[in-house]
Design a protein around this nucleic acid. Structure first.
Lengths: 231, 231
DNA sequence: TAGTGGTCTAGACCACGCG
DNA sequence: GCGTGGTCTAGACCACTAC
């Protein structure tokens, strides 16, 4: 039993309401139950805190938070598919082509000018409703092959499972702006309506940037969730 | 030397460009330099990663990220004042009164109906420009006294330093919507322009909710920054 | 292969809440 | 005062990068 497995086990128990009084067992009890040291327990707990599932109070215990099943979780693993496990996610490819990196793309990917870059635009649906437009760029030196077929599904699963790459972290910039006519049409909104934009720069575990994207979310359907540590 | 102090020292050195090649010393070197164990070093490093200042690559080292001095940092300590150290922050109190908690407020604060709640509206300026409108609520059972004078300054410093309370964490919900006529006037924008809204629920370290707020940011002036861990 | 960060063990003491 | 989470030490081994 390692901390990753333990995280998954406790998370499952929380989601199935298997703990009473919205409270987790004490660290000592978890150590006994799973035969691991305190380091391991606390590591698992830390993951759950970062995912916004629980909070800790020194001297008192660990408490389960109320579920937020209407939000995209910003700072943890979950993509759209994981954040809304009960909803159907579909993706329609609007455009997919390869382009050599100009100055701007080279800077964005910290790569050499001329490096081939996949440019992909997708319209993504949640339970049949247009949810977001994704303008995405992939470094072809790292992601050697992309197709319409792959892009209709989960690209990240393809990268992890089929290409065997390990994804590390993403820098995210969130902002708000007016949307244009074309975007409004795609999202069933009006021109100059608000749009929620997230710019991601995504790194592999080895520190290289493989993906950059701008995602425009339908403001009527989207809430983001995050936990700030203020200690 | 504890991990908190170490965090501050390394952070200062990063901001002053005292490390070469955008790279931190190895963990072993930091252990030697500051006479602490690896736990302590890694704890400090973890804080810096969470603040979005550095990233780690196993087998390679710890790298300093490019500065983002135009963003509000979502998931760490910084308020407006800390995020923009070079800019002047001013606050104008638009309204301050006490109200007994109705069902909605009681639910929001997980307190009893009838509990006195401070309701505060502030317009906040950044270098003289109207930056956000803050609609804030404080549980008077926990924050017994608020005044216009206090609200013109930093309320959180007052709570920490003068009331001696320890702030724990905040749940944040981010969304985007059209702003109304009154809000547009205050922010020098147009009615139905986009607005970036953040709803905060803020907890003390002991787990009680002392503050809830809705902040409307000027979409032309505001970007948020966050780091997502995808491992 | 050497060096670096990632995980884990075993144990100690501290700070805070709660009764 | 007891039980709980928070910090820290000391040491081992593993996984990955870089050469």
């Amino acid at each position: 039993m390692n901390s990753k497995q333990l995280t998954a086990i406790i998370k499952e128990k929380i989601l199935n309401n298997e703990y009473e009084h919205m409270k987790l067992p004490t660290e000592d009890m978890l150590m006994d139950e799973y035969g691991v040291t305190r380091y391991c327990v606390r590591k698992a707990i830390q993951n759950l805190v970062n995912h916004g599932l629980i909070y800790q109070v020194q001297g008192s215990g660990m408490y389960i938070k109320e579920k937020r099943d209407d939000c995209l979780i910003l700072s943890s693993t979950e993509g759209i598919v994981m954040s809304f496990p009960n909803k159907k996610v579909e993706s329609k490819v609007l455009n997919l082509h390869i382009q050599e990196a100009d100055d701007e793309l080279a800077k964005e990917f910290k790569c050499e000018k001329g490096t081939p870059i996949y440019k992909l635009t997708r319209l993504r649906y949640l339970d049949g409703e247009p949810f977001c437009i994704e303008y995405s760029r992939y470094n072809k030196k790292i992601i050697p092959y992309l197709s319409n077929e792959i892009a209709e599904g989960s690209i990240y699963e393809y990268i992890r499972n089929d290409l065997g790459l390990s994804i590390g972290f993403a820098d995210k910039i969130i902002l708000c702006d007016k949307i244009n006519h074309e975007q409004a049409e795609l999202l069933n909104l009006e021109e100059n309506d608000p749009g929620l934009f997230i710019n991601d720069t995504v790194y592999l575990s080895n520190g290289t940037i493989f993906n950059a994207s701008t995602v425009l979310y339908n403001y009527k359907l989207t809430k983001l969730f995050d936990v700030a540590n203020l200690k």
